[in-house]
Design a protein around this nucleic acid. Structure first.
Length: 109
DNA sequence: CTCTTGACTGAGG
DNA sequence: GCCTCAGCCAAGA
């Protein structure tokens, strides 16, 4: 398995899958870990293919802790429901105590 | 090859 | 703290 064979999307999925339960991370954090700090948008774009995969896309939010990608889920509040199920406090599509649940791959991975 | 799109981010007012 | 602008990069048409 050569890393070069892994597309940018695949790398994003790999990191997303490694997000611990009850924790969340940002697109920029993942992008930075991949060495593409400026490609945070690509991380989110990559998540479009997360459907059908076991990628917990609901654990990936923007740096503000805002559930910007919730519109890509089936339901309107599905993403929030999933996060709350993991013990993450979410109010108005925004994660509360973000610093407490934030998971930085560059430091913990 | 060129142009558009986008689940972002940082800087400036 | 909020709003706006610009930069960034990869994939698809």
């Amino acid at each position: 398995m050569k890393p070069e064979t892994l597309n940018f999307f695949d790398k994003v999925y790999d990191i997303a899958k490694q997000v611990p339960y009850g924790r969340v991370t940002s697109y920029g954090a993942i992008a930075k870990y991949l060495g593409a700090a400026r490609s945070a948008r690509m991380v989110g774009y990559a998540m479009n293919g997360s459907g059908g995969k076991d990628v917990p896309a609901h654990r990936v939010v923007n740096r503000k802790g805002l559930l910007t990608g919730k519109h890509h889920f089936d339901g309107t509040n599905l993403m929030q429901q999933l996060l709350e199920s993991e013990g993450i406090e979410v109010v108005d599509n925004q994660i509360q105590n973000l610093e407490s649940v934030f998971w930085n791959p560059s430091e913990e991975l």
